[in-house]
Amino acid sequence: MIELHRVSKVYSVGPVKVPALSDVSLRVNKGEFVVLTGASGAGKTTLLRLLYRDDLPSDGDVEVFGHDLGALKHRDVAALRRSIGVVFQDAKLLPVRTVYENVAFVLRVLGTPKREITQRVFDALRVVGLSSRAQAYPAQLSQGEAQRASLARAIVRKPPLLLADEPTGNLDEAMEDEILGTLRDIWAGGTTVVLATHQTYLAQALRRRTLTLQSGRLVKDEG
């Protein structure tokens, strides 16, 4: 499903070149739950951004669903992203829309028929345990609830791949468990999950395949 072949990414900050990923090769199969771990600045976010074609590698090839992302045309990027759900550390909910509207927004943007939207939104909210908060605005949610709303938005299209970038970074332990539980449920439903986290103990708790990045290099692939 995901294949990186000798991928490097270098950011240019004026005349200074900052390497973010160096010679990373890896493969993630369909249905896997992979934890991508490493300290802040290790290259986790950069790697995820390459996977949903938010950026292009400086060197090497990235393949997702069999598509070489470097050769993808603009209109095909949109099609690729429709198959990928993304969750961030900050939930990135739209503040003037309710939880329901935030989740429905994705379906409306993609032209889903109106009659399907309500059913699918409530299905997604049920998976993350947030049905009772559908009419709440983001400002009225706890951080854990906001993150779960963000998860609902990511899975409402039932994407085969979910990328979660530090989804528990701002949460306390109880809320972390909630989110990890939800991610497990989503994975159990057949979705391939790539979770990036700097919290190494989460990787241990999840007992899933763990990829460790250090200064942009893949130094460990275990589990």
């Binding site: 209109r75 949109a78 690729l80 992203r81 990928i84 990135k92 739209l94 927004f105 994705v106």
Partner: peptide, 13 residues
């Protein structure tokens, strides 16, 4: 923010 989300979920330009 909407634009960012729209792009993220695969909305066309």
């Amino acid at each position: 923010e909407e634009t960012e989300i729209m792009r993220l979920v695969g909305a066309t330009e």
